[in-house]
């Protein structure tokens, strides 16, 4: 294996062009355990962390641009970001221990393409986009469209994610992310649920609800969103959210949880995430 640390996007693309089996990485917190577990070793490792554009947060003109290799601990330490996206902050802060937080990145969390990734449901709930670079130029893709199957993304072999784009949430909006793990830390989500809501008075004007770890990819729960839109938060709407989330879940039995469990808890967490997001939105300007 050969290690390379390009300092520009173009340099990285050049390496990728030379050997499409090269592997880009940021924190390697998934890559190294996967190689240990017997996944084929890439011929070339491309460390993206030395590319300035890929590390850091920028907030300009009501838009956030977050480098794909930015450590999640950097994101979750940004006061303005926390205020704007408390749920996405929670989701990003749940990716592993403090040690992992200093390495893990949204780019890695997304491109590892695990349906249990914590940051991705919250990114989708906030309608995030990624800028993807390739030798034929850059394109912008919805985060929701990146993961197509467990371990598989829609990106081509010569592409990589450069940065994430997020709009400031509209007024009276907030998000929340909750996950269920058997321990309090150091686990992969058994179920994850993100909600982003915009209020108009007491009513929900707009809602996005996304589940993780309950299907081959992330699940947007449109029925739950519809059940909330134009309604107040009450027992009936919450029951509808929970019911919709349970129905939308299409989980598997594995070492981390059962089908029955994941389905039931998807409903619980979706409901709780909506409650939390709405509470926050009430307090938001």
């Amino acid at each position: 294996m050969k290690y390379l640390a390009p300092t520009t996007v173009d340099e990285a693309l050049e390496v990728l062009r030379g050997d499409p089996t090269s592997q880009v990485f940021a924190g390697a917190t998934d890559l190294i355990p996967q190689i240990r577990a017997g996944r084929p070793e890439p011929a070339v490792l491309i460390d993206l962390k030395r590319i300035k554009r890929l590390v850091g947060l920028n907030h300009n003109n009501a838009k956030w641009v977050v480098g794909a290799a930015t450590p999640t601990s950097t994101i979750t330490a940004n006061e303005a970001f926390i205020a704007a996206f408390p749920g996405l902050t929670e989701a990003s802060g749940l990716i592993g221990s403090d040690q992992i937080q200093n390495r893990s990145s949204w780019g890695g969390n997304l491109c590892n393409a695990s349906p249990a990734a914590d940051s991705v449901p919250a990114l989708i709930a906030n309608n995030a986009y990624v800028v993807v670079a390739s030798n034929s130029g850059e394109r912008t893709v919805k985060v929701a469209d990146v993961v197509v199957a467990p371990g598989r993304t829609s990106l081509r072999a010569d592409e990589f994610v450069v940065e994430f784009l997020l709009d400031d949430p509209p007024p009276h909006s907030a998000d929340a992310y909750l996950r269920l793990i058997p321990r309090t830390e150091m686990d992969i989500a058994v179920v994850g649920a993100a909600a982003a809501v915009t209020l108009q008075g007491n009513q929900i004007a707009k809602a996005r609800i996304v589940l993780g770890a309950v299907a081959p990819t992330f699940v947007r729960v449109h029925e739950a969103e519809a059940a909330l839109t134009g309604q107040t938060i009450n027992d009936n709407t919450l029951a509808a959210v929970a019911q919709a989330a349970r129905c939308a879940a299409n989980p598997i039995d594995d070492k981390r949880g059962t089908i029955e469990y994941r389905r039931q808890v998807a409903g619980v967490l979706a409901k709780r995430a909506v409650i939390l997001a709405a509470q926050r939105a009430q307090g938001a300007s």
Binding site: Y3, A5, A28, T29, I32, P33, D47, Q99, I100, R103
Partner: peptide, 24 residues
């Protein structure tokens, strides 16, 4: 990266040394 026994400080931040390639 699951036990922290190799925790080190890298540029003021803690990391698991097992999750870094040496050339990094």
């Amino acid at each position: 990266g699951d036990c922290g026994a190799c925790t080190i400080v890298v540029d003021d931040k803690i990391n698991c040394a097992c999750l870094m390639f040496a050339p990094e």
